[in-house]
Simulated scan of single mutants.
Amino acid sequence: MANKNVNEMSFLDHLEDLRWLLVRSTIAIIIMAFVAYCFSDFLFDSVIFGPTRANFFTYVYFCELSHSLGFAESICITEMPFIIQNTTMEGQVNVFIWMCILFGFILSFPYILWEVWKFISPALYQNEKKHAKIFIFFSSLLFFLGVVFGYYVVIPMSVNFVATFTISPTVLNQFTLDSYIGMVKTSLLASGLFFELPIIIYFLTKLGLVTPNFLRTYRKYSIVLVLIIAAIVTPPDVVSQTIVAIPMLLIYEASIFISVFVAKKEKNN
C-alpha cells in the first residue's frame, strides 16, 4: 500500500501534515458550530429535546405500527413521566457550547474525511487515489445514516425505557440535564461511528489485520452482543428490539462481505 512519495517524507514532515490536518479540521468544526449556534433555538427545542415529547415522530410511527400488527396500544406512548432539570450554575452554558460543537463535528464530517484522505494518500497507489470521492461519499453516507439511526431509533428507545422503568410508584424520575445530553451525545456518535464499520473493515482487511474467517468466527458473539444492546435500549417487546437489532446485524454482515471482496482482490494482486 506504500507509494514512493511517502518514503521521501521525514517523520517531522508527517507530523507537520498531521498538525495542519487537525488545525483545518478544528476550524471546520468551529465554523459549523457557529452555523449550529445560528439555529440554536430549533436545534435545542425541536431536535435535541424532541425525543422527550410523546408526539415525537418515532413514538407516533411505532404506535401506528403496533396497530397495523395487531398489538393494539402495546407500544403506544401517551406521556413522558419525567422532567429534565439543570442542577449546576454553568450547566446550561456548557451544554449549549458542547452541543454546538457536536453538531459542528457532525456537519463537518465529510470535510474531515477529505482531510484524512489527503493525509493518507501519499501512502496509496496511484489507482487507489482515484477513489477519494467514492471513499468520502460512502463514509459520509454511512456516518449520517448512523446518526439518523441513533436519533430516530436509539435515543427515543432509550428515553422511553428509562422514562417508564420504575422500581416503585413513589419514585419520580427527574433526570439531570447532563445525563440526558450525555446520552444524546453518546447515542449519536456511537451510532454514527458504528455505521463506519464497513469502511474500517475495508482498511483493516487491506492491511492484513482482519480476515473474513475472523469476522465469521466471531459472528455469533456479535449477534449476541447486538441482541443484548437492543434489549437494553428498547422496551420489552419483540418489535422494538428487532427494529434496533436488524440494521446493526446488516452492518456487520456487510463488513464480512467487504472483507471477502478485499481479501480476494489482494490475493489476486
Rank of each mutant, 00 (worst) to 15 (best):
L197G: 07
V224C: 01
L189I: 15
N213H: 13
I223Y: 01
V224W: 02
L188P: 03
F203E: 04
P235T: 13
F195T: 11
Q241M: 12
L188I: 13
A190Y: 11
N213R: 12
I201A: 00
L197V: 10
V233I: 14
V224M: 06
V210H: 07
A230P: 01
T242V: 08
E196C: 07
L215F: 04
I181S: 15
L227Q: 11
T217I: 09
L207A: 09
V184A: 02
I181N: 14
T242G: 08
I228R: 06
A231C: 12
P236V: 04
S240Q: 03
T234H: 05
L204M: 15
I199M: 07
V233D: 04
L215H: 03
V239Q: 00
S191T: 10
I200P: 05
K185C: 13
L188T: 06
F214C: 06
A190K: 11
P236K: 04
I201C: 01
V244N: 09
I223M: 10
K185A: 14
A230C: 05
N213A: 13
D237Q: 04
Y221I: 08
I243S: 02
T186P: 06
V239D: 03
V224F: 11
I243V: 15
M183I: 15
P236L: 10
T217S: 12
D237W: 04
I223C: 02
L189F: 14
K220P: 03
I200R: 02
L189V: 15
Y218Q: 09
S191E: 13
T217R: 12
I246S: 06
G182W: 13
I243W: 01
Q241Y: 04
P212T: 05
V210Y: 09
S240D: 00
I228G: 08
R216T: 10
S187W: 06
I181Q: 14
I223S: 01
G208T: 00
L227I: 10
P236W: 03
G192F: 08
V224D: 03
I246M: 09
P212Q: 00
L215T: 07
I199A: 08
T242F: 13
L204I: 11
T234L: 11
K220F: 12
L225M: 13
V226E: 07
T217F: 13
P212W: 00
P235Y: 07
F194L: 13
K220S: 10
L215V: 06
Y202R: 03
L204Q: 07
